[in-house]
Design a protein around this nucleic acid. Structure first.
Lengths: 195, 195
DNA sequence: GTCTATACACCGATAGAC
DNA sequence: GTCTATCGGTGTATAGAC
């Protein structure tokens, strides 16, 4: 039975976050009003404040959830024994995982400046933790003589930028499928680190 | 003699663009008001409309000017004879040129969605022209057997993403100087394309 | 839990005086 | 060329009814 009003807390909360994510990604955080989010959810603007104390916190929770899930997913990702296998796993994981959720990945790179200092620092710390995962692999490979890069920190940043860039041009149904893109990027990364 | 009012057209126009660029880069296009820009310039909000028909056009002109200057600067850049020398010139040029104007480069990547369809298309065309410059080099190198990449288009996107990413972490006075960064990235790019 | 109504500030853009 | 004043609209967030 449809009804216009009533208790929907368990449904509305996730819907608010989903619509906010979609709209923020599409138009930008500052360009989206709470009224627009409410309209997309199908409630009045005031009702949003049952689920978030304010607009910035809504953004922060989207980003924090994403970063924590990203780290957890990488921890759970199967990877081989050596540094080279780990590097290949990272490359394929990053392309695949980010490719599956372009909206929130986009937000994570574009809307950090709309966070206050504490919230910003919290997301930055999670991002650094993720970068450290890759740098640790590169250092191990370097130590084992299986990788040769001039600087592991710069190689880390270069590889992540390169992989994240896939989201800016990849389109489902385009010339290349996801698997082919993974293969090609792994080939370039492997060569770039002298493996 | 200082005076509060008078004719300053030749000075105010550039100042409006400079302050808009600074504020847009710092806070985001949608988050900056015309009143803020006016205050930074030292005029009243209404006076801005002597220099731009509206806010979006102000953004567009910043981006268009930047992209045209980027293309012109690359055309004027000295480069060697072969594809490998041209690739090295491109890598070093991109890092150096973008590193010198981080604000407008940031805008060019972040604020495209605030343009209307025609303005968006115009900037996209300029960006594609720049990407084509690199892809042409890669194709020539591939044809000459001096470069081996699985896909020149993907290699183009990967290299540009990787190089542009430098701006996200590079800080003047950090561990590495600009020249060292150029050297390191050129080393990684050279290896990535199998040269 | 959601609604209606609203407080209060700010928005982009324009008109007309000087 | 710049100012002051202002239009019509929208912003986030809250109060109180149900």
């Amino acid at each position: 039975m449809a009804r216009k009003t009533g208790s929907h807390s368990e449904i509305t909360g996730p819907r608010v976050r989903a619509e906010a994510q979609r709209l923020f990604a599409r138009h930008g955080f500052a360009a989206v009003s709470m009224r627009q989010i409410a309209a997309a959810v199908g409630v009045q603007a005031g009702a949003l404040y049952l689920y978030t104390p304010d607009k910035e916190t809504l953004l922060f929770q989207l980003l924090e959830t994403h970063m924590k899930e990203l780290l957890a997913a990488w921890q759970a990702e199967p990877r081989g024994q050596g540094p080279l296998e780990a590097l290949e796993a990272f490359v394929r994981f990053h392309i695949r995982y980010n490719g599956e959720r372009p909206e929130v990945v986009f937000l994570s790179y574009m809307e950090l400046r709309n966070l206050g200092p504490e919230n910003f620092a919290a997301i930055e710390a999670l991002r650094r933790a993720y970068e450290t995962e890759l740098e640790t692999i590169l250092k191990a490979g370097q130590a084992a003589g299986m990788i040769l890069v001039p600087d592991t920190k710069l190689a880390t940043m270069a590889i992540i930028a390169m992989l994240t860039g896939v989201n800016t041009w990849f389109r489902e149904g385009g010339r290349l499928g996801r698997a082919a893109v993974e293969d090609i990027y792994w080939d370039m990364v492997r060569k770039a680190v002298g493996a």
